[in-house]
């Protein structure tokens, strides 16, 4: 399955990345090369093999769910491009 123009548009939308018009053709080529290359894996016999999500084989660490207040509202907002009255500001999303 090769990646065409419409696939790139669809994936870019899913990834929320705007692709510049003049980068599109080169990107399609690169993605097709990479996907063509990883397609080699189809030759590997993986019948009855369990997928390996992590190499970590200890019990996952769960910390106690105690309320903590390490960071102030002011600190958390400090890096935001726009904030107002203690909130992050985004463009209007409801009419």
């Amino acid at each position: 399955m090769s990646i065409d123009n419409s696939t790139v548009k669809k994936v870019a939308l899913l990834a929320r990345i705007e692709i510049q018009k003049n980068d599109e053709a080169a990107l399609i080529d690169e993605l097709n090369n990479i996907i063509g290359w990883v397609d080699e894996l189809k030759k590997v016999n993986t019948e009855d093999i369990e997928p390996m999500l992590s190499v970590f084989n200890e019990t996952m660490n769960m910390r106690k769910d105690n309320p903590q207040s390490n960071y102030t509202n002011e600190l958390i907002l400090k890096n935001s491009p726009e904030n107002n009255a203690g909130f992050f500001v985004v463009p209007k999303v409801v009419e």
């Binding site: 696939t7 990345i17 980068d23």
Partner: peptide, 17 residues
């Protein structure tokens, strides 16, 4: 689109695909 460089965007596209 403007914040990430070319290689990062390429990998994010592959990952999303």
């Amino acid at each position: 689109g403007l914040g990430f460089g070319k290689e990062v965007k390429r990998r994010l596209m592959i990952g999303t695909y």
